[in-house]
Amino acid sequence: MGRFHRHDDGTAHEHDHPQGHDGTPEHEHSHLGDGARHDPQHGDGAGLIGREEHLGDHSAYETGRERIEVLERIFDENDRTAAANRADLLHHGVCAVNLMSSPGAGKTTLLRETLRRLAGTVRVGVIEGDIETSLDADRLTGFGAEITLVNTGNGFGGECHLDAPMVRSALPRLPLSELDLVLIENVGNLVCPAEFDVGEHARAMIYSVTEGEEKPLKYPVMFRSSDLVVINKIDLLPHLDFDLELFRANLRKVNPTVTTIDVSARTGDGVDAWCAWLGSQLAGSRQPAASVQ
C-alpha cells in the first residue's frame, strides 16, 4: 500500500514501503539514504517523531540483569492506530483533515460555513472532538453532513486533544463508503493536538487575528505541523492592532512552507478559497496508484 507524501519543493507522490500497512508503522524504519527525505513538518504526524533513528526491538540485556534496553517510541501505539485509521479512510476513498485551533478561533463557525458551501457537491462527515461538543454539534446540523461526537471525557475534566484511538472509535459511526471528506474538529488547544497523529491526510489550523502575532513562536509545534493556516476573523482587522505581516513573518520562521488563507467565517470572505484548498486535498488523497514508485 502506497502512502501519499508531499515534499518541500511542492512535489507529491506515493511510494511503497517494504513494510506497508501490515501493522508495522512505516516510520519505524530509517529513511536515510533513500534519496527522498520526507518533510518532517507535514501533517502525517509521523514526521513529528525523529525518523532518523533506526528503532527496533532491543530488549536484550545490555549491562547484566539490572538494565533493560527498550528504545520504544512512546507514541508507537497511537501511531499504529493512526496508520490503521489512514488505511481505512484510504480504502473508502475518504480524505480526512484535522482541524486544530485554540478555543474561540472560530473552528465551528468556519465548519458551518464550509458545510453550507459543500452541501450537495462534497459528501462530508464531521468528527467533533471539542469538549463543548454537543453545543458545537448542534450548530452543525442541517447541512446534510454526517456528524459524530467523540467523548473526550476521561475523568480529569476532559481530554485536551484527540488521539488516534478516539478517532478510531468514531470512524465506524460514519458511513465512510458514502463520504468524500471527513473533517476532524480537534479539541480547542494550541499544544496537545499537535502531538497526536490521528490518521488525517492533512492538518489545518484555524487562527484568529485576535490571538496576537507572536503565537507561532510560542506554540511552534502546532504551527510547524500544519499544512495550512487559516487566518480567521479578518473582518476585525480594522478594529485591532494586529499586525498581519508580522504574524506571517513569525509563522514563516517556524514553518517556511506553510500555506495561508485569509478568511472571515462571519462575512464569508475567503471561505471559498478554504473550500478550494479542501478540494485540492481531496484530489491529492486520491492520486492514482500510477504514481507509486
Binding site: 518532517p40 539490572e66 517510541r73
Partner: peptide, 18 residues
C-alpha cells in the same frame, strides 16, 4: 529556509533499570 530537523523530535523510552 530549506532545512530539516535532525535532532529534537525524539520521544522514547530508552531503558529500564530494575
Amino acid at each position: 529556509a530549506d532545512v530539516e530537523v535532525v535532532a529534537g523530535e525524539e520521544f522514547l523510552i530508552t531503558a529500564l533499570e530494575l
